[in-house]
Design a protein around this nucleic acid. Structure first.
Lengths: 215, 215
DNA sequence: CCTACCGATCGGTAGG
DNA sequence: CCTACCGATCGGTAGG
């Protein structure tokens, strides 16, 4: 029941269909392709609203083929979330380690998170917000641990801002209002729709709205 | 194709099962029961993650019976959203018509919206956030019109606050940051979990965090 | 990774 | 509103 079948690469048939020959690292690329396609579809239609056949189709595969790369649909969802969250955390961590004036650091943090939310191939945040609860309990706990690191970093920032007199309040709800405002942008911000408001502009607007003083 | 079958009340069988006799207004009550059950299930599992059989079961019906009250699953979803949004709008409108000091009015507006989001039998806001896009285009447009009224009321409030020097900025993004922060509470606020922080306290905390001056 | 397929489940309907 | 049911679709698998 817990035995992992050793998945071995089957050598592709030659000839037959005159398609461009698969590269050596093809397997990994195909797997990534599945993840990207799945992330986009989950974002647009939700986990339950997306079928394996759609994911396969968007990855130029036949309906059963995603299961060559993933055990089941749940594993695709979990992987989308884990890889996305890890990439996002790396951005946050990088900012937290920088030595910047507090206000600039906050803006960099906001900008980093906006990049994670709205950047290219970053469809996973809406998926996370939307379908976190569809994950099996075990996977959910694992992701939660990553999410807690996120929260701690933001809490530290919010409390520092408050201590420096830049933010009206600190504490849990202050963090939640701040992060909520940013996260909710998943519902309304579209780079191609909000012309003239790119991610830099959005971060600046946000910081200007929340922090005391400044312009 | 567009013909509405005239649904007539079938008189319930008497005797047989010795259950409490159905009241005269039973149909409407049953219909409401379906809506409440569906709203709760949609909130917890999403539209696509919820089956008609679950809705029926939670309403003490057999699997095909919800279709006695609703044409199809989409109509259940749309009705949940429409009734919820209408009830929410009524609360907003009532506050906007009151003659209050601006700060108090804002707090009342926030409180009203929190009531809509977290009050008893108000499961529809998460559903709306979550599954708005699963609605058919026609129904979506209809709901959008209602949502626009919502947005206009909040925009007016935000701009008034800005004009009065109580809010750092006005305009579209200011409204979106404010509303986003509130709406995101759907993801974290639970009355039974956040002990000591009821909806009044939450509204006060919110206003205190966002408005200039005050305590 | 494809072909062919299966069992389960789902939304919905007829007929009372 | 129940009973009995259908066609479609879905996640997943065997076997190559």
């Amino acid at each position: 029941m817990k035995v992992e079948a050793p998945k071995k690469r089957v050598k592709p048939k030659v000839g037959a269909k005159a398609q461009s020959a698969p590269a050596p690292t093809d397997d990994r690329n195909r797997r990534e392709g599945v993840l990207r396609a799945a992330a986009r579809l989950f974002r647009d239609q939700g986990f339950d609203g997306t079928t394996i056949r759609q994911i396969a189709g968007a990855s130029n595969m036949q309906s059963g083929s995603p299961f060559y790369h993933f055990k089941d649909k749940q594993e695709i969802l979990a992987t989308v979330m884990e890889e996305g969250l890890s990439a996002g955390w790396a951005r946050i961590e990088a900012v937290m380690e920088r030595d910047l004036p507090l206000r600039d650091k906050f803006q960099a943090l906001v900008r980093a998170h906006l990049e994670t939310m709205h950047g290219t191939d970053s469809d996973f945040v809406p998926v996370l917000q939307h379908d976190f609860r569809r994950l099996e309990a075990t996977r959910r706990r694992k992701l939660k641990a990553l999410g807690d690191k996120y929260d701690r970093a933001w809490q530290e920032m919010v409390d520092d801002l408050h201590a420096a007199g830049l933010l009206k309040r600190g504490g849990r709800t202050a963090r939640l209002w701040v992060m909520g405002a940013i996260n909710y942008s998943a519902q309304w911000y579209r780079a191609d729709h909000d012309r003239g408001l790119d991610l830099d502009g959005l971060a600046r607007d946000f910081v200007g709205f929340f922090l005391e003083g400044g312009k």
